[in-house]
Amino acid sequence: MNFPDDLKYTKEHEWLRIENDVAVVGITDYAQSELGDIVFIEFPEKGSSYSQNDSMGTIEAVKTVADLYAPVSGEVIEVNDELADTPESVNQDPYEKGWMVKIKMSNPSEVDALLDSAAYKEHVAEA
């Protein structure tokens, strides 16, 4: 399983790519594998704000349904509309085509407490 070194991770199996004060968010290779065939993502509204760990959306897979949590606090400035037609991109390419939302962070220091690749790998191994 692949957990790129340049990303940050949460224990809820989300990844973040930090670009200045914006976090690009998706779910990890482990998460997509656990969920199986993903068929729909209910995105938050663009412009809506969330606190860290709020549920901001839903991921529907054939077998089960999961919440999409806000890994950092901030405002949703973009969602990946392409996933409406190709939700399978999350399974096939979770870190690139499968990105889900961009959050403009209101408290960028929250990033410091997130997991790095090695720590996340350890977290998954214990799961």
Partner: peptide, 20 residues
């Protein structure tokens, strides 16, 4: 295969994907 506990048995829930 992705293995899960089903009725006390380690069973394959999927190999390539449920839909496939």
């Amino acid at each position: 295969a992705k293995i899960v506990d089903f009725g006390g048995y380690a069973m394959p829930v999927q190999y390539t994907g449920i839909i496939d």
